[in-house]
Nucleic acid binder design. Structure first.
Length: 214
DNA sequence: GAAGGGATTCGC
DNA sequence: CGAATCCCTTCG
């Protein structure tokens, strides 16, 4: 009962963001957008802190909002699973830049994946967002990195986008949030990464029904 | 210029 | 379990 009430208040907070008109919405968003410093640390440190935050993409004036429930850290050029370990190329350039920007890449010729570039400084690391719990304006599945990009209309045109403003950003939700436990485990789909295969760099909200897998 | 492979998803 | 599908990277 209490859990249900908490859930209600969370949904109301979500609705408030959507119902407010644009100028107010901008102020609200501005107050809650994660600052540069949030991202300016090791990916392993930043990743679990991204859980519970809201990913927002404004499309045609409508906010599509998902609560981040699953992430993976790619901790730098020495991480054999990280794209930056292959060197600095046109594709991975954004990873070598300022923290707090979106790194969006195409995988298997069909799917986009969204990362937040982390640090410290220009240490080429990032956090992959792997699953969202729908909050508002979402149609379609969001359990999986390719699926969530499809549902939020995120593609490579947003590669390099500054996550501190504009149409795509990550924000701290308004009001009191439900508590959750963080579970760490090995990353998905990185069997080629040698020693790094088993490192617990995947972080999930325990028991969340929107995870990409159990 | 060719070839190999991928931080995935879907259908058989 | 394999196909889809295409860009990126490396190699010749």
């Amino acid at each position: 009962m209490i859990a249900a009430r908490r859930e209600d208040s969370r949904r109301q907070a979500a609705a408030a963001v959507v119902l407010i008109d644009r100028p107010d919405s901008f102020i609200l968003d501005f107050m809650n957008i994660l600052p540069r410093d949030f991202y300016d640390h090791n990916a392993e440190q930043v990743a679990p802190k991204m859980l519970g935050k809201w990913l927002v993409h404004r499309v045609d004036g409508i906010d599509r909002i998902g609560r981040i429930v699953e992430v993976e850290a790619y901790v730098g050029p020495h991480d054999l699973a990280a794209h930056s370990s292959k060197g600095r190329t046109a594709r991975t350039e954004v990873m070598f830049g300022e923290p707090g920007h979106a790194y969006v890449y195409l995988i298997y010729g069909m799917y986009n994946c969204l990362n937040a570039v982390t640090g410290p400084g220009e240490h080429a690391s990032a956090v992959l967002i792997r699953a969202l719990e729908p909050v508002s304006g979402i149609e379609g599945a969001t359990n999986g990195p390719g699926r969530l990009c499809r549902a939020l209309s995120i593609d490579r045109s947003l590669n390099g986008h500054d996550l501190l403003g504009g149409v795509l950003y990550i924000a701290r939700p308004e009001g009191r949030q439900t508590r959750f436990k963080v579970v760490a485990g090995p990353r998905v789909g990185v069997d080629y990464a040698g020693d790094w295969v088993h490192r617990p760099l995947r972080f999930t909200i325990e028991g969340n029904p929107f995870l990409s897998r159990r």
